[in-house]
């Protein structure tokens, strides 16, 4: 006897056992009883397109056992919308579930469906902040946040403030850097470029680099900014030189600065200096990518040694 077979609420439903399509199928049945029973009732209600209240408790039960079961979520959303349930209650139920299953993808899709139907982002920023306390790089949450910003046209100021708080907690959070780019540029694609924004963003990223010079996110951000505004990389030459200088090859504080300097020297036509910077990267500051740095040197016109692995791409 089971939870559902003993419940009068479900007396009219004939549970549907799993049919794997063969006498000795590759994926035959041996569920644990509880899960197996709930699933057989789910199959039955789905087969009859049952949209009644009891389906909500059934789907809640299955989700509590297996939140990754995508079909259950889709069916639940359909029932909620059909019955015109109070969707705020759904969000209240959803919050602890999302906090417990950080890697779950279905929960965020479901949330998006519900919030879209509610037509209000109220409380979402607070909940996202709670999620980020556990994992500030959760890809599902960041995707959801971007959707929220677009869907409800959330203002830049509050977004930039939230990003700033996250970067204060962890200046290496690449997701937050990406979101910053999205807020400042991505959502305003096509707008004319404002020089004061360049100045503000450059200053912001440079301050972050002072905190942690060996952090690729703000360096990528700076490169992206200069490219976006069509400024030469040499704009930041004095800045980069603070972290790496060919005069002090043993005192390099950032391989990214050395990388930037190599590009700047190349642009200035001082290829020998560019090659020196690339050699330092290949030999000392980023040897695991020696082939990449050798390739960069090759692009400058310096041929690699004939036995260099750059010539043996396919050999193990």
């Amino acid at each position: 006897m089971g939870v559902y077979s003993d419940d009068p609420l479900w007396a009219d439903v004939e549970p549907l056992p799993q049919d794997d399509g063969g006498p000795n199928p590759l994926a035959a049945i041996a569920y644990t009883d509880e899960y197996s029973e709930a699933m057989s009732y789910l199959r039955a209600v789905m087969a009859s397109n049952d949209m009644s209240e009891r389906v909500l408790s059934l789907t809640e039960d299955i989700i509590s056992m297996n939140p990754a079961h995508y079909t259950v979520w889709l069916y639940r959303a359909r029932v909620l919308l059909t019955l015109k349930k109070d969707l705020k209650e759904e969000i209240a139920w959803l919050n602890p579930t999302a906090l417990n299953y950080q890697k779950n993808y279905q929960i965020w899709h479901h949330r998006q469906t519900i919030i879209d139907a509610l037509d209000s982002p109220e409380g979402e920023a607070e909940f996202i902040a709670q999620m980020f306390e556990r994992d500030a790089k959760n890809y599902h949450v960041w995707s959801y946040r971007q959707w929220l910003v677009k869907r409800f046209d959330i203002d830049d100021e509050s977004e930039l403030k939230a990003i700033d708080e996250l970067l204060r907690a962890d200046v290496r959070n690449n997701s937050a850097w990406n979101h910053r780019w999205f807020v400042v540029f991505g959502r305003h694609e096509g707008d004319s470029l404002d020089e004061t924004v360049l100045e503000r963003e450059l200053k912001y990223a440079q301050a972050a680099i002072y905190l942690a010079p060996q952090n690729q996110s703000p360096w990528n951000y700076v490169r992206g900014l200069l490219r976006k505004y069509n400024k030469p990389l040499s704009t930041i030459k004095p800045f980069a030189t603070e972290f790496a200088s060919l005069d002090h090859p043993d005192d390099v504080h950032s391989s990214h600065a050395l990388d930037v300097l190599a590009d700047i020297y190349e642009g200035e036509g001082t290829k020998a200096d560019a090659a020196k910077a690339l050699d330092l990267l290949a030999q000392k500051y980023d040897p695991i990518r020696a082939n990449y740095w050798t390739y960069r040197k090759f692009l400058l016109g310096f041929p690699p040694e004939p036995d260099h692995p750059i010539f043996h791409h396919h050999n193990y």
Partner: peptide, 24 residues
Amino acid sequence: DEIIDFVISCMHDNGGFGAAPGHD
């Protein structure tokens, strides 16, 4: 043969496949 049986058992009339029989 068993693999082909299983794959076909996951197929819906609309031409799509679920992860297992009975899944969307």
